[in-house]
Nucleic acid binder design. Structure first.
Lengths: 222, 222
DNA sequence: GGCGCCGAACTGTGATCACAGTAAAGGATC
DNA sequence: GATCCTTTACTGTGATCACAGTTCGGCGCC
């Protein structure tokens, strides 16, 4: 069943454009933790007025992806060790569930998904080889996102994305400690479990991957 | 250690006032699923201008507590069975973790917390006896909220509250099926586990309570 | 030379207005 | 009497302006 060309975005509201832009920057770690933003600044950067910029910033504050100082200034939050622990605890709880749901839902029709995941994994290796920290974060997230998208569980996915949004700025630093540790490739384990149709094993591989990420993040946090 | 009077809210921004108001209505199920809201309407109801009302609505849309029609109209979402399943799956994963953290954190200094939880539980019984559906939802949520607050895990708590916000409008209907089923009081089980300092048993009681809620919600959804 | 103070620039917030699109209600037609 | 269409009222979006509070600069003082 060939898919037609993606609907050429009939109309992109300005506030959503700003939101997507900021969100992508946060997810990929393009924004330094602790950095400050201004509504007028992001409005000018995307050539819109203050209003849509405000809405976008507000949304991200509501998702804890941005923080407000007591006086109302906007900054990229810098999670401390305890908060990082909470966020990875949430990932450890939610992501295996999504992985398991994905495996059960695709069943044996696993070909297309496997191909997409392999592509993301290749991009990840390439980013590591090229020393591209932001590309690394993006590819790693893409791998997980592609897998979980197959679960067809938008509400759970939204929760996980909310967590990613909060860990994004710190995840960039994780790239810095890669290579200083011997890492096990749980993505490969996950792909094997998925092609075997073993939902439990897939969930376990994802849990291990998240745990490894948590360890790296804890190491990179100091 | 007597606590001083709560700081008399030095200044409440209008947008947050609107946000809190809408949020409370959603959490307690005061808003009917499928009902539609207008920015001008909520602005008028709280006697503020459109701007803060917009911000508040936007935040709640970002948290999936409100939904937008393709044309941009605002309505209280009506989760279908699959979405409800996702939301309770998330509660089932996250809340036992919070309960366990709470138990470990309070350790043996459990007196104040137990007292607060008993008070919430009494309010819950009173609401059931009085036939107050909204009071029931509020007291039940208050019980869980008080317990998890003791965990000192704001990031996890925010995730759970996001889920509550989405289940709120449907939870009101749950009250309708209470009494048609013989219910086990897992709150009592939880309180016993807490006073024993048994974190694992507390987590298990909370999981059972969430599961029972999920069953009731599934029953009330049709 | 270091410290404290004052002012100017800048911040987020709130209000108001103009606009394009949608939904609903009314009437005309068959 | 039901159906379709037109018009009207209303919706969310975006822009602009006024304002109060904060921050950070430079200047004067010790």
């Amino acid at each position: 069943m060939p898919e037609g060309p993606v609907q050429a975005e009939p109309r992109q509201p300005a506030n959503e454009q700003v939101y997507r832009s900021l969100r992508a920057e946060l997810l990929e770690g393009a924004l330094e933790p602790g950095a400050s933003l201004t509504i007028r600044g992001v409005a000018a950067a995307l050539d819109v007025s203050m209003t849509p910029a405000r809405e976008a910033v507000r949304q991200l504050v509501a998702e804890r992806a941005l923080a407000l100082t007591p006086s109302g200034r906007i900054l990229v939050p810098l999670p401390n060790a305890a908060e990082l622990d909470e966020l990875f605890a949430a990932r450890r709880l939610l992501e295996p569930e999504l992985a398991e749901r994905a495996a059960r839902r695709v069943g044996r029709r696993v070909g297309g998904l496997l191909k997409a995941l392999h592509a993301q994994d290749d991009a990840l290796e390439a980013a590591i080889a090229a020393g591209d920290a932001q590309g690394y974060v993006r590819a790693n997230m893409g791998f997980h996102a592609s897998l979980y998208a197959a679960a067809g569980s938008p509400a759970l996915m939204a929760l996980v994305e909310s967590v990613w949004l909060q860990t994004g700025p710190t995840m960039r630093r994780v790239y810095g400690v890669i290579g200083t540790r011997a890492l096990q490739d749980f993505h490969e384990t996950a792909l094997a479990a998925l092609s075997d149709g073993d939902a439990k094993a897939l969930a376990e591989a994802i849990r291990a991957d998240v745990d490894q990420g948590a360890a790296l993040a804890a190491e990179a946090a100091d």
